[in-house]
Nucleic acid binder design. Structure first.
Lengths: 218, 218
DNA sequence: GCTTGAGCATACTACCGGGTATGTTGTCAA
DNA sequence: TTGACAACATACCCGGTAGTATGCTCAAGC
């Protein structure tokens, strides 16, 4: 609320990132409602006081985890936005990167998933509503970026589906799916993640009706 | 616990089905942890007493909702198990029916989804563990049925993927996806559900690498 | 008509967890 | 040196909720 310089915001973020990570892990494992603030604090090796010093409420903390997760997503596909002419090539790159981001930041992505839907029914105060609408907007504008490219692929004749809205939904769902069924191996093998992302990406692109001849290098 | 005749079990089920439905709706809207027993009772126009007369705990109630949802799934695909020679034709039928069941029994399927994973971390008593393992088994054996047919489709040369395990996961995820992004219209149009199920099914089958020439009638 | 038990409702307890109020410590600026 | 404030820890409050104990009613069986 007070006038804080950007450096102050920066250091605050550094302090908070540790909290964010612990919160994301807790929320992923037990869900938002089943995770207590004390749980998050225990994971940090500290107490409630630390969390409530940085966040005004549990919902605020969750919102920040959500926001951070969406920032990671947006940052990952940002370099690709202007780098391709062919929409299919662009879609391939975006899908692969998106899926890799899912795998690499799984706890946050699980929070994004649980996300707004649950909070909508619980949140009561007007400011909370406002925050949720904002977060919802982040998610939707992200999905729209994919939808536009998907529609471009259809117009190029290389994809084949009926409703772009539905197609986008299933497409993203296929790419998101590993955050649920993939449990990371002890050997944190980056190649293995790449392998999984490739398979999800191929599945999703083929689901859109894109021929295998375009998917050799995925 | 006492020796109950089958008819007694039958009438008990009838009484309980009303509770099951209310519980499924509550759990779908707010999630398991955020739904109180009183919420479920309110939706029934009754009180806690009724629920605790039939169920020993909240977890028990949820388990029954889960079980019921899985029974619906199993019953839906059961007639198809011996009706096809071509694995692709069988898979088409199973996928379509599965997706339609998702759409028609959405509240229960959302509970199945939230399902065991969350409870695993919360459930403490040994008997609860036992129940969860049983429910987990229901889900897995159901998935295995799909996996076998999917593998059959690959062996027939009409499908093309690398890991049948991963392929099955993404495949089912694509078919399950409408329980999240589809919100039923006021006009409870059965044809519309069929339309959506068709699109999901085509997406999922194409994702497996099955050619469009096999998917005209989906 | 009396008992018995199923099928609930009512009233109550115990505890957990979100939130707050206050104390403590280190650091930095004046 | 001291005041001020950030960054926590400690101690406490209190509302909500799972679960229980008990009361009520009605229908069936004898």
């Amino acid at each position: 609320m007070s006038a804080t310089s950007e450096s102050e915001i920066g250091t605050a973020r550094i302090h908070q990132e540790e909290i964010l990570e612990a919160a994301a892990l807790c929320f992923m494992e037990r869900g938002y409602n089943a995770s207590s603030i004390d749980d998050v604090a225990r994971r940090l090796g500290s107490t409630k006081g630390r969390i409530y010093h940085h966040y005004r409420s549990k919902a605020d903390l969750f919102a920040d985890v959500y926001r951070y997760g969406m920032e990671l997503n947006a940052a990952a596909i940002k370099p690709l936005c202007r780098a391709y002419d062919d929409p299919v090539e662009k879609l391939k790159a975006m899908a692969k990167v998106h899926c890799l981001t899912m795998l690499r930041t799984r706890p946050f992505q699980r929070c994004v998933w649980e996300g707004v839907s649950l909070l909508m029914r619980g949140a009561t105060t007007p400011e909370q509503r406002e925050t949720l609408v904002e977060l919802q907007g982040l998610r939707e504008s992200y999905a729209i970026r994919f939808r536009e490219v998907i529609e471009g692929a259809k117009e190029s004749g290389k994809a084949d589906f009926e409703s772009s809205g539905i197609a986008t939904q299933i497409f993203l769902m296929a790419l998101n799916s590993p955050i649920f069924w993939y449990s990371p191996r002890d050997t944190d093998d980056d190649e293995q993640l790449d392998e999984i992302a490739s398979r999800c990406t191929r599945f999703a692109l083929q689901g859109l009706g894109i021929g295998k001849e375009y998917l050799q290098d995925v």
